[in-house]
Design a protein around this nucleic acid. Structure first.
Length: 583
DNA sequence: GCCGTTTTCGGCCCGACTGTTTTCAGTCG
């Protein structure tokens, strides 16, 4: 879809025009085109092909010509001309929160401030305050925005953001009466990272107090929460605040009759909402965050189910709302039967003091059991991983003995003898075959020589997958979310090999890994590869990250039958021995 | 720059919030 590319181009044109002080209605017209393009259900290429570009509201002769130019040549002359008049460092100033095109135009025009660096200098010289409209607070806000920008805060990890959301929701519930409160946005869709947090709330009606007053009360309670270092704004129905880490949280107080529509709208994704709006459109209805309307009459909006139902759809679980086929599946009544946390009977990757875990097997097992599991796998590292106190063959044999002893004493719960064996640079395994053969389950993974070429790395992992002793390839790409790219492995070829050899792929459920990710996990599932969830627990608390792994499986459209952790202990062991029997 | 049972000029617009103003400009999602 070229829609988003074109939207970005027109947005940049609008920015430059506005910085230059062009006619505001011309700027507004460009902004409208950006909005329309971003939300457009149809592909501009198709529309252009059909000669229907001008039918799109906001697209007139000039814009249609520019769009066609882009589709034909890959660029727009007028855009390049505009951008060439402004230095790229100047456009960067727009990234500062609270600084828009007007301010940038003012700074550049009056003071020659055309970059972040020059802005710092001008602030230090006290020049900014001499400009019209630049008071003390405004300058203070620019200083803060600069600090925040230089800290280059990225998106937060899902697990961290969920804990924060739980804290905030819990605390708000303690302080005020609420009939509804729900975090929306990418957090509700369980995306692996979250940019900011949108919380929707409906305050409980109180006798003798009007709606405006209860909304105000909610905003006030939110603004005074201890989780925040700073309140950015607080009005009648909306407030924004920031945690000490610079993570932004918004509260929106909505009327109960709009709650469902608002929840739907703010949950997104954008692409999913575009599709829903186009369905509404085709039925002659209008969908917004206030409700689903037939003319002026709201026909749904109190709850999400009602909104989807009025559009002729079953309610779609937030994890699937990415426009990756869920609308089609819903329309044809073929929604997947997704795995849930209740289906999970075990954790398939954990560590103990035998390598780099912080607790004994007894302690970890006690916790796994209290978690409601039927079994769990101890999978400590192998010897080459010195930094993690990896096990020699002898120590692994000792560990297996200890586990046998523990199992003999316990009923209704089993500890599996497992290992996370290193895949050495040449693809061989860091433990003799005859020792590995004694284990219940073998995970293999890479912890060294990350820099190998894609060819070498892929061959290295494929070799491990072909070993009849390896049941699961753990954290298959090695990526660490926001902090490390994965090693270059051809995931497509790995999936083929795993399908052919009966090897499972892990969805490592640690919040910093979530590896495989949703897209690759779905490819694997569709290729018939079994998936395995493991929190990589190094401490009992880490078991709590299992819902994150489940969410990846759900975003990958997995049913319980695709996930090894839903198997009984016997069935799981049978899965492992089936591959070994091929030897 | 777009748009028009207000058609070729003259009006367009999203609502909430802050901050610098004294009625409004700028930013943001």
């Amino acid at each position: 879809m070229k829609n988003q590319e074109l939207a970005a181009i027109f947005a940049q044109m609008a920015d430059v025009l506005e910085i230059q002080g062009a006619n505001e209605f011309r700027v507004r017209s460009y902004r409208k085109i950006v909005r329309v393009l971003e939300d457009l259900p149809d592909d501009v290429e198709t529309l252009a092909g059909d000669g229907r570009l001008e039918d799109v509201p906001g697209v007139g002769e000039g814009t249609a010509k520019k769009i066609r130019e882009y589709l034909e040549t890959g660029k727009i002359e007028a855009h390049q001309e505009l951008v060439s008049q402004v230095r790229p460092e100047t456009l960067e100033l727009l990234n500062l929160s609270g600084v828009g095109p007007k301010t940038v135009g003012l700074l550049a025009g009056k003071l020659g401030v055309t970059s972040i660096e020059k802005l710092h200098a001008a602030l230090d010289r006290g020049e900014i305050g001499k400009l019209p409209g630049m008071g003390e607070k405004k300058i203070e806000n620019i200083r803060k925005a600069l600090d925040l920008y230089s800290a280059a805060r990225g998106r937060a990890l899902l697990g961290w953001a969920r804990d924060l959301a739980d804290d905030i929701v819990g605390e708000l519930r303690d302080r005020i009466e609420l009939t509804e409160i729900e975090p929306a946005g990418s957090l509700r869709r369980w995306r692996e990272t979250v940019g900011d947090l949108d919380i929707l709330a409906v305050p409980a009606p109180r006798k003798g107090v009007d709606g405006v007053e209860t909304a105000r009360g909610a905003v006030k309670a939110f603004s005074s929460l201890p989780q925040f270092a700073e309140v950015l704004s607080a009005g009648e129905t909306k407030a924004s605040a920031r945690t000490p880490d610079g993570f932004q949280v918004d509260l929106r107080v909505v009327p109960s009759e709009s709650f469902g529509a608002a929840l739907q709208y703010f949950t997104g994704s954008k692409a999913h909402n575009v599709r829903l709006r186009s369905i509404a459109q085709s039925k002659g209805l209008k969908l917004s965050e206030y409700g689903l309307f037939d003319g002026d009459r709201a026909i749904a909006g109190t709850d999400e189910e009602g909104v989807y139902e009025a559009l002729g759809l079953p309610w779609i679980t937030p994890e699937l709302r990415e426009d990756r086929g869920e609308i089609e599946a819903a329309l044809s009544g073929k929604m997947p039967d997704l795995v849930t946390i209740k289906d999970i009977r075990c954790d398939l990757q954990s560590h103990s003091t035998f390598s780099d875990g912080s607790c004994s097997i007894t302690e970890m097992a006690g916790f796994a059991r209290s978690h409601g599991y039927d079994y769990y796998a101890v999978t400590d590292h192998s010897q080459s991983l010195k930094i993690a106190n990896g096990m020699t063959p002898d120590r692994f044999l000792m560990q297996m003995q200890e586990i046998d002893g523990l199992n003999a004493k316990s009923e209704g719960f089993r500890i599996l003898k497992g290992i996370e064996v290193d895949i050495l640079p040449d693809g061989s395994l860091d433990m003799p075959d005859d020792v590995l053969a004694k284990a219940d389950v073998v995970l293999a993974s890479i912890h060294s020589n990350f820099k190998q070429s894609e060819e070498e790395m892929t061959e290295r992992i494929l070799k491990a997958a072909r070993s009849p002793l390896v049941n699961i390839i753990a954290h298959p790409t090695g990526r660490l979310i926001v902090s490390r790219e994965g090693y270059s492995v051809n995931v497509g070829r790995l999936i083929e090999e795993c399908a052919a050899t009966g090897t499972a792929l892990e969805i490592n459920s640690h919040q910093a890994r979530l590896d495989l990710n949703d897209v690759n996990a779905r490819r694997a599932m569709e290729a018939g590869v079994m998936l395995s969830l493991g929190t990589d627990a190094h401490h009992p608390d880490d078991f709590a990250m299992m819902p994150l792994g489940v969410s990846v499986a759900r975003r990958a459209w997995c049913a319980p039958r695709h996930i090894l952790n839903t198997f009984s202990c016997e069935s799981f062991l049978e899965f492992c021995s089936r591959k070994r029997a091929r030897r």
